[in-house]
Simulated scan of single mutants.
Amino acid sequence: MSQILGGRTPFDDIYDQPDPRGYFGSLGRFDYRTPHHAQAVFRRLVAARAQSGPVTVVDLCCSYGINAALLNHDLTLADLYARYTLPQIAELDTVELIESDKEFYAARRRDDAVPVVGVDIAAPAIDYALAVGLLDAGFVENLETGAASPALLRAAGPAGLITVTGGASFLTARTFQQLLGAAVEPVWVAAFVLRTGSYRPIADALAEYGLVTEVDPARTVLQRRFTDLDEQRYAIAAVTEAGADPAGKETEGYYHAAVHLSLPPGVTGHPSAR
């Protein structure tokens, strides 16, 4: 973990494995917890959005379907960390784990579960999430470098909510514009964004689709611990450059993320992380 790309330690290899054991093992060492914070926020947004009809969620940078697992099942992130680090789970091959996970998730499926469409550039992660039933549709596509496929646009058309927890730093307006341009219903967007960068260009693009972005910069959530002092120095410098104060947040050893909610004017400030 000593090699840092753009100041941040890369974890790219954990998404190229056939199942999520490496994901939970690696990120668990650094107390990665954004999906935990997102779970309640996304559930509230889905419930509010469902008042006007069925809701499909599009989860960007979905990896192994973690957000879908927490949204649609009676589980916590701690439950998932515990499961995927069990000695008996470590002994299974991927085929055996997939069969076990199908039963595991099916037994915990919520009555209010909603369809989730996942988008990620990591094919193994998408394949796993589809195989165990976490995603209703999954697409291995990079909307930053290419046009969305017709199949993705069809699947995303009914979306009522777009979510992102772990990948906002790697996205631009291009990704959101393609999805919102294909929407047949008003779409809400919920993004957990690290304080090391600016969400403003994306928020400005979402405004072109009638969405107002709200964020309380004073209210942040812990993302994960820094891997080393070099990464912490990078984060402190980046947060300062972005015009925020790292004191009491990044100076304490963790990345912090702010929750950005982009909603139509009539529902601005409705369900939030507050």
Rank of each mutant, 00 (worst) to 15 (best):
S272Y: 13
D93A: 06
R219C: 10
G28L: 09
A159V: 03
E144M: 08
T94Q: 07
A48M: 10
R109Y: 01
Q51S: 12
I14P: 07
P10L: 06
G53W: 04
E241H: 04
V267W: 12
E141D: 11
F104W: 11
P158W: 04
A106T: 06
E99K: 12
A129R: 02
E96M: 05
D204E: 13
E214Y: 12
T220A: 13
T240A: 14
D112A: 00
F170Q: 14
I126P: 01
D101Y: 13
V116A: 00
A123Y: 11
F30R: 12
D31K: 12
Y234H: 14
L60G: 07
G253D: 09
V187E: 01
D245A: 01
L70E: 11
P35T: 10
R225Q: 13
T251K: 03
G7W: 08
A48R: 09
E231D: 05
F24Q: 11
I202Y: 02
L97M: 09
H37P: 00
G133M: 03
F30I: 13
Y84T: 10
G197S: 10
A156E: 13
E99G: 05
V55L: 12
V187L: 06
L263G: 05
T56M: 07
D111R: 13
V114E: 11
G248Y: 07
R154D: 13
S52K: 15
L70R: 10
D216I: 14
M1L: 08
A190W: 02
R33G: 14
G253E: 05
F176G: 01
A173W: 14
P264R: 13
L75W: 05
Q232P: 03
G65Q: 03
G243E: 00
A242T: 01
E252F: 08
H36V: 00
D230L: 05
L80S: 06
V193E: 06
S26C: 13
A148G: 08
A244K: 15
L45G: 04
R219E: 15
V259N: 07
A129V: 11
D136E: 09
R174Q: 04
G6N: 15
E185F: 06
P201S: 06
V140T: 10
I236K: 01
T145N: 02
G160H: 09
S272F: 07
N72E: 01
G146N: 10
D136M: 07
D19L: 05
I236D: 11
E103G: 01
L263S: 13
T175Q: 07
Y84G: 04
G166W: 03
G167H: 06
T213C: 04
L263M: 14
R200P: 00
P271E: 14
Y255A: 01
H36S: 14
P87C: 00
W188R: 03
P35H: 12
G157S: 14
G243A: 04
P54M: 11
P246T: 06
D93I: 05
G181E: 08
T196C: 02
T145F: 07
A131L: 09
L206E: 01
P217K: 02
Q178I: 06
T163S: 10
D111Q: 13
